[in-house]
């Protein structure tokens, strides 16, 4: 009987939870959108050493979304492992925390349109004439042991001959010494290595095509359709007005440490591959 009572009680709480007012109405009412960010992941969100405030690509996006909704944004630092609980428990209204949009997570939270796409990429020597991934068929490609690079590349180019080394710099040296046609690694590491090459850069090209993709999106509480519509609409406007593009180049483009030469995605979809 006590069990029954507890169950009823739990049901009651659950009902109260779902019957709460619309999240978007709440946000407009308090005039504030609280974004959960990592603040430890340059340049997505990090603490600016000069101003000691949290800045970054996702912070700019969050402020822009708040502006479109008609409220001000506050930024709250959260831990990687606490991202989804913080959102579910209402401590933050929205996650802008380098959150990869996966099918598994769709069961517990909703996602906005994809706001950033990262993944693994391939660097080739310019004189190899390789311009796309299928051309790597039967070629020797180097990378580091222990990661997902080899498996991901094989999914795209099954006949590739992969040779792995203990460290990424060793693999890069092997590429530079003409021991392989290409070097595959995580995008950020690859651009970092490319940036450090200096004048030797002219002999190498990073292929635009991703080997694997990690769609990053804003995390939203489940079953808040009005909120999702508002956030997605705000993001679409940012894309249409080229504001989103401006922020991408501000944080990732030439002149930054990462020096992404181009932007290979648009904020337009909330679909992810299986």
């Amino acid at each position: 009987m006590r069990l029954m009572a507890m169950a009823c009680c739990a049901l009651g709480v659950a009902a109260a939870w779902t019957a709460r007012a619309d999240q978007l109405v709440d946000i407009r009412h308090k005039g504030e959108l609280t974004c959960g960010v990592l603040a430890t992941d340059e340049p997505m969100s990090f603490v600016d050493p000069q101003t000691r405030t949290i800045v970054g690509y996702e912070v700019d996006l969050c402020r822009a979304v708040a502006r479109k909704i008609g409220v001000t944004a506050t930024v709250k630092q959260i831990a990687v492992g606490a991202r989804i609980p913080e959102l579910q428990q209402g401590h933050v209204d929205l996650l802008a925390a380098t959150l990869t949009h996966t099918r598994q997570r769709e069961a517990v939270i909703d996602f906005s349109l994809t706001t950033f796409v990262t993944g693994q990429k391939v660097m080739v020597r310019r004189d190899s004439g390789i311009t796309n991934l299928p051309q790597l068929a039967g070629k020797k490609v180097v990378t580091v042991k222990g990661g997902t690079q080899e498996a991901n590349l094989r999914k795209v180019v099954p006949s590739v001959d992969v040779v792995t080394f203990e460290t990424a710099p060793q693999a890069l040296v092997a590429l530079q010494q003409h021991k392989a046609a290409a070097f595959i690694n995580d995008e950020v590491s690859l651009f970092d290595a490319y940036a450090k090459m200096g004048p030797a850069q002219k002999d190498f090209v990073i292929l635009a095509q991703n080997v694997s993709t990690e769609p990053i999106a804003m995390g939203l509480r489940k079953n808040e359709p009005a909120m999702k519509v508002a956030v997605d609409a705000a993001l679409r406007e940012l894309e249409a007005s080229a504001e989103a593009q401006k922020w991408f180049f501000k944080w990732f483009g030439p002149g930054t440490r990462l020096q992404y030469p181009t932007r290979n995605f648009k904020i337009e979809s909330d679909r992810v591959p299986d």
């Binding site: 042991k145 222990g146 498996a151 040779v163 203990e166 092997a174």
Partner: peptide, 18 residues
């Protein structure tokens, strides 16, 4: 294995990773 020769140790590490 350190120079990427696909001998037993190399393949073992690869199997472990996957």
């Amino acid at each position: 294995t350190v120079i990427g020769t696909a001998e037993l140790m190399y393949q073992t590490q690869k199997v472990e990773t996957n």
